[in-house]
Amino acid sequence: MLKARIIPTLLWKGTGLVKGVAFDSWRRVGTVLPAIKVYTLREVDELVILDITAMDDGKDPDYDMISDWAQECFVPVTIGGGVRNLEQIKRLLRCGADKVAINSAAYEYPELISEAAFKFGSQCVVASIDARRTLDGGYECYSHSGKKPAGKKPCTWAKRCEELGAGEILITSIEQDGTMKGYDLELISEVASAVAIPVIASGGAGNPAHMLDALRHGASAVAAASIFHFTEQTPAEVKAFLGQHGVAVRRIIR
């Protein structure tokens, strides 16, 4: 049986690892490489590493550094942040990224997803969607780390990304992110029912019960950062909890 994945998210800004609240008030929480080593040692299911300033800077990813990270990472890793063309995707995959997350650039040039899927396979294209609630109770997508409204609804945009060839959707609730008050279950549910590809829930996890909720609302995987940065809880403890509640999780057989 396919296991629910617990995915620590590492947000990277400038020189270090950070974590914010609602895509703001960034706190420095360490450096990336030691975090990767610890998570690899603990045999986590997967990692997501996002450069949160890359789109603003307009710079290319730092391939040497990403390559150093990937070399220490013996679990699957998704790299994202500022990805805007096929050449970058090709180089990131060559550096050792297993998947590449595409966010802002896809709103301006949706064909980036279809071209990447055609050339490198759907399995390595993760469409990353950041969404905020609107006044009328719906949701709207935002690009550039939550700064620019994209004028699209997450469920229709997710569906479009699937049609273009994305292999997974990473859906993040901007308001819930970093609050540790739980995922936006309505958002997850809407997106997960709109597509047939796996959906990774992100933004708001504060305890294992929140993750259970997200999985019960259609997510195939749960991404989280604060819970692992700021609490004593480990991915292994989360899995033990989920296992007790009937979720199939990967057991590490010694």
Binding site: M1, L2, K3, A4, R5, D45, E46, S122, Q123, G167, E168, A196, I197, P198, V199, S220, A221, R250
Partner: peptide
Amino acid sequence: SKDSERIPHVGWNE
């Protein structure tokens, strides 16, 4: 997909 499994098949499996 046989039983509404999501595709791609992504993750840890037996």
